[in-house]
Simulated assay, not measured.
Amino acid sequence: MAEEAAAKSESKLDRLRKRRPWLDHLFRANERYSQQYGAHYAAAVTYFSVLSLVPMLMIGFAVAGFVLSSQPQLMDELKTGITEAVPGTLGNTINEVVDQAIESKGTVGVLGLLTAAYSGLGWMSNLRDALTAQWGHAKADLPFLKTALKDLVALVSLGVALVVSFGLTAIGAGFAELVLRWVGLDGVWWAELMLKIGTIVLALVANWLVFLWVLAKLPRRPVGWRSAVKGAAAAAIGFELLKQVGTIYLSSVTSSPAGAAFGPIIGVLVFANLVAQYLLFITAWTATARENLVKEPPPAPAPAVIRPVVEVRSGPSPRAAAGLVGAGLLLGALFRRR
């Protein structure tokens, strides 16, 4: 009867979660994401991500200044590409900014490096704290200098991983196009389709390697590579989908002059926040897998209460007294006969 009553009290969703382990896993991940303030951490990561864009662009302009100063033809092609890509007078404004940044490339590069170090450390610190929280670990009180040094090493390592990832994707795509030209299949539709599929697969593999490193090495407590494999695969696929959606969104919001001015900024904010939330949710999904769940110890029994019972009697009970009197009379009668 008790089991039937418990079964009736379960909701349809509870029964569905028992029958579908993957659905139960998603609900566990969502509960962990909400309990560990995933949206708040994603907002902090988004803020520092956008803040880091400015110094990174400054460094990019400085590098471009050193490279393009002796290549005026490439400089003209860059300005022409900006003018064609950005509608209205915004393209001319960006070209003026590029000219000023290239002219003062030394100062811009130094300021960019200093600002990038500050904003990058803030971004990495919040990202590592966010990933650690999704694993259910409380934020520990760590030494400032030691933590900052570790965050700097992690930031540089992540930058190297991203460069290697994008480099592999670009080199792989370029090499595939070169092979098509060599074999005479350049322009053939099925060969172009295979090249497109291969490029996507290569990008997924590169993203998987990056996310595998992020999920396994960025949390402040060690995480096994095996635990992060599935999460990295899901993150890589989701990131590619988000990139496609972001491309469509940016092309739609920049179709008007007002959208060209404000659309990219809003688009970067939205895209960065979506990526941050998705990454933290994937981390929560990885942390709540069956093999990573920490078994809760059985509840401790209630404390034992010892209550000694002490009875103090002043004399024998009436029944015992009557028995003693009877025994005395019997013994007395026996002694008299002797």
Results as ranks from 00 to 15, higher is better:
Arg338Pro: 15
Ala42Asn: 00
Ala258Gly: 12
Leu162Tyr: 09
Lys8Met: 08
Ala320Gly: 06
Lys18Val: 01
Ala133Arg: 09
Gly88Ser: 10
Asp14Tyr: 09
Gln277Cys: 05
Val214Pro: 07
Ser157Arg: 03
Ile306Glu: 11
Gln35Asp: 15
Phe211Met: 04
Val45Ser: 13
Ser11Ala: 14
Gly122Tyr: 06
Leu74Ile: 07
Arg28Phe: 02
Ile237Arg: 01
Phe27Gln: 07
Asp76Val: 08
Phe239Glu: 00
Phe239Lys: 01
Lys230Val: 12
Leu274Asp: 02
Ser52Val: 10
Val45Asp: 13
Ser317Lys: 13
Arg220Tyr: 04
Thr80Phe: 00
Asp76Leu: 14
Leu158Ser: 04
Val45Cys: 11
Val50Asp: 15
Ala258Gln: 08
Val268Ile: 07
Ala216Ser: 09
Val253Cys: 09
Val97Gln: 13
Val214Cys: 15
Phe175Ala: 13
Tyr41Gly: 12
Glu103Leu: 04
Ala29Pro: 00
Glu4Tyr: 00
Met56Cys: 11
Val153Ala: 13
Leu13Glu: 11
Ser165Cys: 12
Pro318Trp: 03
Ala42Gln: 05
Ser314Cys: 04
Leu53Tyr: 02
Tyr47Cys: 11
His137Phe: 10
Arg15Glu: 13
Gly246Ala: 09
Thr93Glu: 12
Ile200Val: 15
Ala276Phe: 08
Asp24Trp: 13
Thr254Cys: 01
Pro298Ala: 01
Lys243Pro: 04
Leu53Trp: 04
Leu168Phe: 12
His25Trp: 15
Arg336Tyr: 14
Asn95Trp: 04
Pro297Gly: 10
Ala261Asp: 02
Gly323Arg: 15
Val153Gly: 08
Thr283Phe: 05
Thr286Ile: 01
Leu204Gln: 06
Ala130Val: 02
Gly65Gln: 09
Ala233Pro: 14
Glu31Asp: 07
Tyr249Phe: 04
Val312Tyr: 10
Ala276Asn: 06
Tyr47Lys: 10
Arg336Ile: 07
Gln36Glu: 10
Val309Met: 13
Val98Gly: 12
Thr286His: 03
Arg221Val: 13
Ala284Trp: 00
Trp225Lys: 09
